[in-house]
Design a protein around this nucleic acid. Structure first.
Length: 476
DNA sequence: ACCCCTTTGAAGACC
DNA sequence: GGTCTTCAAAGGGGT
């Protein structure tokens, strides 16, 4: 991964350029047809791969073979891409003020608010990605009402318009089925989705008019501005952490990043405190140590997707009830055990963030549900993205890693290595790769060895394996 | 129930 | 230092 400006690992700059050289700007400009082609490719390949190959052999070669590389072509491509990006972003990404790589040029990252006080598109995008069903659209009340009206379980036939019909906008909440599969949903999104009426900026629900400690009756101090409630915060470790997403912290110092709709800056997400059913939902989906108590939700109790307790399924409501009856000592012991069992997941990389945001759209656009096929489409679209669009996700991923690193200083990706079954999988993969090498195929190895600029040195399988490369049939 | 598939990127392991 | 491996998400499919 090339480092840019000696700085962060923001992205594969050269790779993105290379992919742009592969004629994919056409996909960007006419994304509709390309997406349909993607879908058709994947679908047909699922049905009959060999048949597809035969049918596509005639044009795939001419269409997908990378054109001769030259700087002038690259520049032209970049220019056209930027123009296309400008058109499609609807002004989200203005013309780059710097000629270099635009990772830190996202204009409104530094100030998430527009002059009128609403969230900037980028901030909305980020929030929307974090909370896929959260309505952070401008024009809030109307769309919120619409969402509220659509809260009843949506049948699968609710298929929103294709995303390319509204380039530059992020209407996930309005375009994908409101009720998603649990796997699609951020752990907290259902709470938000089904309680939009509680997202009244600055107006907490009646029972939470003031943030008062139910025990002491003393108003609690506001949520510390430098703590993101997105991750559960371990005591003593985070209090002094500067907010890594200061770009989402407005002037008042209230945390905006972790939440919310335009203007919803209540230190405690009011939607999470609404009623007992919400709490029961929380307790049913999360282990008790992650579930904030009723009416006293503290941000430290808000789970983050990065944290998973392996035995969530075993913690039924019955166990919760029984735990209530158990002694405090056993509770403490259980808490300790659970803490030990907490699995801190890797922060999502740029592509994973992109997938998470776009998967619902792709699923809605086609009848495919197999993730493997969906991911193929997403992989293609990822490469079809402009540099600016990709940069957005690289930036988000960088912030994710930064936040993750600050919250779990001692965590290492190695902690999750072979966490399951002690290297069982590793062995399998090695065996598999050995089998592949015996088969004279080592996908992607040539890419790393020779690079994209020397694809003529790639072996056939690599060229075949890699997306958008020369058709397999040509080689055959 | 568990693993595979499929994608990209990050990071650790390995040579 | 280059290469390899694993793991993040996702959910249908296979064993």
């Amino acid at each position: 991964m090339p480092q840019l400006n000696g700085g962060d690992d923001l992205g594969a700059n050269d790779e993105m350029i290379s992919f742009k050289d592969e004629g994919e700007q056409e996909e960007k400009i006419s994304e509709n047809s390309s997406a349909e082609r993607d879908l058709a490719d994947v679908k047909s390949s699922l049905v009959n791969e060999s048949e597809t190959n035969q049918n596509s052999s005639s044009d795939s070669e001419a269409e997908r073979r990378p054109p001769p590389r030259s700087e002038t072509f690259r520049d032209k491509t970049r220019e056209s891409l930027e123009e296309a990006a400008k058109r499609q972003d609807g002004g989200l990404f203005k013309s780059p003020p710097y000629p270099g790589y635009p990772f830190i040029m996202i204009p409104d990252l530094t100030s998430p608010y527009l002059p009128n006080g609403s969230l900037s598109p980028t901030a909305r995008t980020y929030l929307q990605m974090k909370w896929p069903l959260l309505d952070v659209q401008p024009g809030g009340l109307q769309s919120r009402q619409a969402l509220k009206d659509a809260r009843s379980p949506s049948p699968a036939h609710i298929v929103g318009p294709f995303c390319w019909e509204f380039p530059g906008q992020f209407h996930l909440s309005n375009k994908v089925p409101v009720v998603q599969h649990p796997h699609h949903v951020h752990p907290l999104t259902p709470l938000i989705t089904y309680s939009n009426e509680h997202f009244t900026p600055g107006n907490p629900p009646p029972h939470l008019q003031t943030d008062v400690d139910p025990k002491t009756g003393i108003p609690r101090p506001p949520h510390p501005p430098d703590i993101s409630p997105y991750y559960p915060l371990s005591p003593g470790t985070v209090g002094q952490i500067p907010h890594p997403l200061g770009w989402l912290v407005p002037q008042q110092g209230q945390p905006v990043y972790p939440i919310t709709t335009g203007g919803f800056r209540h230190p405690y997400p009011t939607a999470l405190t609404v009623n007992a059913s919400m709490s029961s939902l929380l307790s049913s989906r999360f282990p008790p140590h992650m579930v904030p108590p009723h009416h006293s939700l503290h941000t430290t109790g808000i789970p983050h997707p990065a944290i998973v307790t392996p035995n969530v399924k075993q913690e039924s409501s019955h166990s919760d009830i029984s735990s209530l009856n158990s002694s405090k000592q056993t509770d403490a012991k259980k808490e300790e055990e659970k803490k030990k069992q907490v699995h801190i997941k890797k922060p999502l990389n740029a592509f994973m963030l992109y997938m998470k945001e776009m998967r619902a759209k792709v699923v809605a656009e086609c009848t495919l549900k197999e993730s493997a096929a969906i991911n193929q489409i997403l992989g293609r679209r990822w490469h079809a993205l402009s540099r600016e669009e990709q940069a957005k996700y690289y930036e988000l991923a960088r912030k994710e890693r930064q936040l993750h690193m600050q919250l779990y200083p001692g965590w290492s990706a190695r902690d999750n290595y072979a966490a399951n079954q002690q290297g069982k999988r590793k062995k399998r993969k090695r065996e598999k790769q050995q089998a592949e090498s015996n088969d004279l195929s080592a996908p992607k190895k040539c890419r790393a060895r020779f690079g994209l600029d020397q694809q003529n040195n790639w072996c056939g399988p690599c060229r075949c394996k890699y997306p958008k490369e020369v058709s397999c049939l040509v080689r055959a």
